[in-house]
Simulated scan of single mutants.
Amino acid sequence: MVARLPSIDLLRVLTVIVIVWRHTWPVPKGEPQMLLATITVPFFFFLTGWLWRTGKRTIRDETKMRWLTLGRPYVTWLALIFIEFAASTIKGDITRDTIETLIRPLLGGSYAGRPFSTFWFISALFFVAIMMRAVEKLPRPHLVALAVLLAGVGALLGQKLDRIPLSIGLAIPCLAFAVAGYLLRQWAASREHPWRGRRRVRAVFRRVGVAARVA
């Protein structure tokens, strides 16, 4: 198994900072800035897959843990910011536009504008983690096919997925990057032990030879 490097964790933290900056303040004009803003989210979820650890945790356990680490802070900060947001939004008569403005942050995802624009990222990570736990034990060929399929769905149906509340739809292409990172880490781990596969092949041939002699 590839050792977990502190530099990778630091890189992931820096990626989160860039994502928050991108969704909190306008991105400066210029190709380098736009390129950085475009690749940070896929790169973060790629690192999420790279750092993923398989284990005995069930989907239910994963959901409980992610609720404590992501869901509860999401709801808490949403409530705190929403109180101030609602107070500044409701002025005079409550119109249909006012109600729609108040509902959009509760829907999350792309519906929530500033100051809720960074919240989509938390809910997307919540659902990606749960889905990763569900697919982590699939054979590698199946995971490769799944990553390609999810990336294709994201490319073809990106706008429709964007309309699903709480970033559930956006979690689908994000999962593709997480699975890609997970697969690359597995490949890197196998490269650390190049003789492991050869030893297995030799063991199989030995068993076949013994069976032939007995026959």
Rank of each mutant, 00 (worst) to 15 (best):
I8F: 08
L14T: 08
I17F: 12
V18K: 01
V18M: 11
W21V: 10
R22D: 04
V27G: 09
M34E: 15
L35K: 09
A37K: 09
T48W: 01
T48L: 13
W50Q: 01
W50P: 00
W52Q: 00
D61M: 06
E62V: 09
K64E: 14
G71M: 00
V75N: 08
W77I: 13
L78P: 00
I81N: 03
F82A: 02
F82C: 05
E84A: 15
E84L: 15
A86D: 01
A87R: 13
S88H: 09
T89C: 04
G92Y: 02
T95M: 06
D97T: 13
T98Q: 04
T101P: 06
I103R: 05
P105H: 08
P115S: 02
W120T: 02
F121E: 02
A124E: 07
F126L: 08
E136R: 12
K137P: 00
L138D: 04
P141W: 04
H142R: 15
A145F: 11
L146T: 04
A147D: 08
A147F: 05
V148I: 15
G152H: 00
G154W: 06
A155R: 13
A155G: 05
L156M: 12
Q159K: 14
Q159A: 15
I164F: 07
S167K: 02
I168W: 06
G169H: 03
A171R: 04
A176F: 07
V179F: 02
G181I: 02
Y182G: 01
L183Q: 03
R185K: 11
R191C: 13
P194Y: 05
W195K: 11
R200S: 15
R200T: 12
V201R: 11
A203P: 03
V210P: 04
V214N: 13
